[in-house]
Design a protein around this nucleic acid. Structure first.
Lengths: 98, 98
DNA sequence: AATAGCGGGTTTGTAGTGCAAACTAGTTTG
DNA sequence: CAAACTAGTTTGCACTACAAACCCGCTATT
């Protein structure tokens, strides 16, 4: 197997999924943001977004903090160090592949 | 939704799957090759390779030609014009996204 | 002439995944 | 107080990737 193919086959599947790729790409440049921001930015539906976030949390790539803004619930999302590294690696992999 | 995200969300899922991405990347620069070449190059198992090829054929991205080399069956694979275009688009999408 | 093994794949079974619809829990509005 | 809204989560289903099992014709073996 050549380098290009190896790079492709080693792409992180958690990040590779476009829905999650959007989320991570959005979280990457900022300190944090909330659920509704992601919802609007990605144009996913809530169910979808919720489960992708759960998957990313399970992988240790995002932190989910549930807070209140007054009486209204508000979910804050942050990329963890691990998530940041994983995304950097993912992009390196893409570069190696193409 | 910004340009980056749109590019991500519009990535062709048939090509996006790493197994198929390897296949298409291999077929792209050559006129044709056979099943066993892909099998070795990708290090997939036969079943997997077979079904990814079927999916690509169904999408109209590859042509599958069954021939004989003497008495031994030999399956030849080629990227169609449509497949070539789809891969070019896919790479354009990646560039736009990262 | 059975049979065992191999080359070249395809089919089958299953676990996992993405998706939207339905649901939950609480809040605000009429 | 009922209806509607906010902010998500859970459920159910359809699809998919994957590997194990299978298939089938050929060749070598006993």
């Amino acid at each position: 197997m050549n380098e290009q193919l190896r790079a492709i086959s080693e792409l992180d599947r958690v990040i590779h999924e476009p829905g999650r790729l959007m989320i991570v790409a959005l979280l990457w440049p900022v300190k944090e943001c909330d659920f509704l921001y992601l919802l609007n930015a990605t144009e996913m539906n809530k169910g979808n977004l919720s489960s992708h976030l759960a998957r990313l949390e399970e992988a240790g790539y995002v932190e989910i903090e549930k807070t209140y803004r007054g009486k209204v619930p508000r979910t804050l999302l942050r990329l963890t160090r691990k998530g940041r590294t994983a995304f950097d690696q993912y992009r390196k992999g893409l570069k190696a592949a193409f």
